[in-house]
């Protein structure tokens, strides 16, 4: 069961998607200790590692949900690269602190690099959408939430006590507003839209 790549480790992705506790536990037993070591050796501690790892797993889960994530490399390399990237970004944000990076010599294949890059980008985009969505007014937020929860636009209009035409138009404009907020963010240009 070990060694051979492609497909086999897809079970971890499927397990996350199904909220399978055995699989999540297996990820912690098999792959997490290496990440914790890396973070500890690079200006971090166990608590920081715990957060970085949890955030990384949620990003993988979200990408799997949204984009049908297919793993074509070992989960180990992919997961390690993702956590490492997230940790280095966190360190960069905290500029006051002096940091030294102890690079391990790793032979990580290109597939893992590519996939980890895609997932990081996905996670950063999600974070930006989320941040900007929180900045929007309650009227827009409520309308958008209702729109995506309730299938029919007629029912949405009814539940908010407005006309169908108004709800329909307002929804487009609210997503437009979110679009604008995202485009105006200083992070926008780094995200490859």
């Amino acid at each position: 069961m070990s060694g051979k790549k492609i497909h086999e480790d897809q079970k971890y992705i499927e397990g996350l998607l199904n909220n399978n506790s055995f699989i999540i536990q297996a990820i912690y037993d098999k792959f997490v200790p290496k990440v914790v070591n890396y973070i500890k050796q690079n200006s971090g501690d166990a608590d920081k590692a715990q957060d970085i790892i949890q955030e990384t797993i949620v990003t993988i889960y979200n990408q799997a949900k949204e984009q049908d994530l297919k793993l074509t490399c070992p989960f180990d390399a992919y997961f390690f690269l993702l956590c490492k990237r997230k940790w280095l970004n966190a360190l960069k944000k905290n500029k006051n602190k002096e940091v030294t990076i102890n690079e391990e010599v790793l032979s990580i294949d290109d597939d893992a690099q590519e996939l980890a890059f895609e997932t990081s980008l996905f996670g950063e985009k999600q974070a930006l959408f989320n941040e900007m969505f929180q900045k929007m007014g309650t009227a827009c937020k409520d309308l958008i939430k209702a729109t995506f929860k309730i299938k029919s636009m007629e029912d949405v209009a009814k539940s908010l006590g407005v006309t169908y035409a108004y709800a329909r138009k307002k929804k487009s404009l609210c997503i437009g507003q979110l679009t604008k907020l995202v485009q105006e963010s200083p992070k926008f240009n780094q995200l490859n839209f």
Binding site: E66, Q126, F129, I175, G176, L178, T179, F193
Partner: peptide, 16 residues
Amino acid sequence: RVFLDATIYLQNSIRN
């Protein structure tokens, strides 16, 4: 593209 991504993001995060 951003509008489309925003739509997909909202759809998934709210529905799920």
